[in-house]
Structure formats: C-alpha cells, structure tokens
C-alpha cells in the first residue's frame, strides 16, 4: 500500500480531518509541552558544561539528588513487594470488602498530593496515631528520610498494583496446572513459573512508581522536615532556588533530574523490550 506513495505524509484514506487533527495536535503539543521543555534545555545549554557541572556537583545538590533517587528506589522496591501481594490477593482471592479495597487502590491517583502530605504527617508525627505508637521505640518517621519513604510508597502504590493486576488476571491456569503435574510444589510454581512470567509487568510498575516518586513534591515536603543534606529532595531544592530567583541553579538541577530519570526509565524499557522479544506469546 505504501509503495508508490513514498513521499506522502499519510496513506490515502477516505476519512477526512487528518490535516486539521494532526495540525492542532502538533501545535498544541508544541506550545504546551515541547517549547517549554526546549526552554529548559536551552537554558541548561546556556550554562555551559562547566557551569552545569559545578551546580550539579555542589554538595547540597548532590545530597538532594541522592535523597530523591535513593529513597525513590527504596520506595518503589517496597511497592513491588506489597503491590504484587495486593494485586495477587485482589485477583486470586474472594473475601468481603475485596472490591472496596480494589477501588481504594487508586486513591493516590485521585487524592491531591498536598492533602496526602498533611494527612501522612498527621498520622506519623510524634503525636499522631502511628507516630505515638512508634515514638516509645525511638522510631521517628515524620520529619526524617523515613517520612519521605512513607509518602513515596503512598503515591507509588497504584502503579505496581495496576500494572500487575491485568497480567495476573489473564494468567493461564493451565500453566500452573502444568507445573504442578510436573511435580512442582506450590511454592516452586509461584516462584519459578509465575513470578518470572509476571516480571515484565512488575518491572513496568517499578519504573512508573520510581519515576513518579523521583519527581514527587506535594506529599513529601510536609512530612520530610526538609533538612538540607538529610531530608531535602531535589524538587524542593529547585523550588528553593527559584524562590531565590536563581534560575540557573533551578534549571541545572531540573535538567540533571530529568536526565537521570529518563536514563533509568530507558534502561528499564530496554530490559523489557528484550524480555518481550523473547517471551512474547
């Protein structure tokens, strides 16, 4: 079909409106997303490499980036463990309240982050419900890096659950039966057959949760305590630099964050593409 129309923008079609629809799409996309992001890159480039490097390797910046990425990684890992359990329970078992729980999994998508932030703080502060329980043991959650972790687990949870759920739902019972008939115990079936098969979905969920956690701002700043070098996340540092009208520093940190985040997501996509090529049905 494409032959003979090599230079045409689209394949001939009876349906009208291509020019208008694509034109509007590209214009809107450019104005809202591409040009503003280009401005960020432009500004970064104007700093020159040494300028950029100097800002990004400043101790406070490095500390903030480390806090953001390390805690996001931990939070996404926690979400993988509990997200898979939650998805498993919601798909595989029947128990009262299951559908309600299932609906609530999306709460972090729907609840404004600032609301989540102050609510988590209220719970984990020293006089909060859980904070008071933990305080006698010397465990402090709110206003420490742990608090950041709690907030990031909260906002990342739905990603893992929602990516694993449909794959688990479509998982062929016969695969499990085949494993059992070959002599595998239930534990062997789950860990050697099922979880490896769910791995691409789990990785996707991890990547989404991680990406979201790295950029998260609203829910974290209330509970973090925001102590430089300890519990100050990179997005907050950007806001601080902006409030100082230090656009250069804000831009450089933002660019560094984007670069690292995109690299991580790209790597995970590579792993996934590799897996999918091999295991595709």
């Amino acid at each position: 079909m494409a032959g003979g129309h090599g230079l045409a923008l689209k394949r001939p079609s009876a349906i009208p409106g291509f020019g208008l629809a694509l034109g509007f799409t590209l214009t809107y996309l450019s104005l809202i997303v591409l040009i503003p992001l280009a401005a960020l890159m432009f500004k970064t480039a104007s700093l020159g490499f040494s300028g950029f490097w100097e800002i990004v390797t400043a101790p406070r910046t490095l500390a903030a980036l480390r806090v953001s990425f390390v805690i996001s990684f931990i939070a996404a890992s926690i979400n993988v463990v509990f997200g898979v359990i939650v998805a498993w329970v919601l798909i595989r078992y029947r128990f009262p309240g299951r559908r309600l729980l299932d609906a609530f999994v999306d709460l972090p998508f729907a609840l404004p982050t600032a609301v989540a932030g102050i609510a988590l703080t209220a719970i984990y502060a020293r006089n909060g419900w859980l904070g008071a329980l933990l305080d006698p043991f010397g465990i402090k959650i709110a206003y420490t890096p742990w608090g950041i972790g709690v907030a990031l687990v909260f906002i990342g949870l739905p990603f893992v659950v929602r990516t694993v759920q449909p794959v688990l739902e479509d998982f062929e019972r016969e695969i499990e039966e085949a494993a059992a008939s070959l002599g595998a115990s239930r534990r062997q079936t789950v860990f050697r057959v099922m979880l490896p098969a769910l791995m691409p979905a789990i990785l996707t969920g991890f990547a989404l949760a991680f990406a979201r956690a790295v950029g998260e701002y609203g829910s974290v700043i209330f509970i973090a305590g925001n102590i430089p070098f300890v519990s100050e996340i990179a997005p907050l540092l950007i806001v601080i630099r902006l409030e100082e009208f230090n656009y250069a520093q804000a831009t450089a940190i933002a660019a560094a964050m984007l670069m690292i985040a995109f690299t991580v997501i790209f790597l995970i996509n590579l792993i996934q593409a590799w897996q999918r090529r091999r295991f595709a049905p």
């Binding site: 085949a178 494993a179 059992a180 008939s181 070959l182 002599g183 595998a184 115990s185 490896p196 295991f279």
Partner: peptide, 19 residues
C-alpha cells in the same frame, strides 16, 4: 496430590513456560 501423582499432562494450549 497432583505433584505426587506423577502423570504426564499435555494441554491443548500446551501451557509452556514462556520465560
């Protein structure tokens, strides 16, 4: 149990382990 029964089972869908 199924694992103990030692029967060879072939499914219509084959149920091969994709990974």
């Amino acid at each position: 149990t199924v694992p103990e029964r030692n029967v060879g089972l072939v499914f219509q869908s084959y149920a091969l382990f994709r990974h």
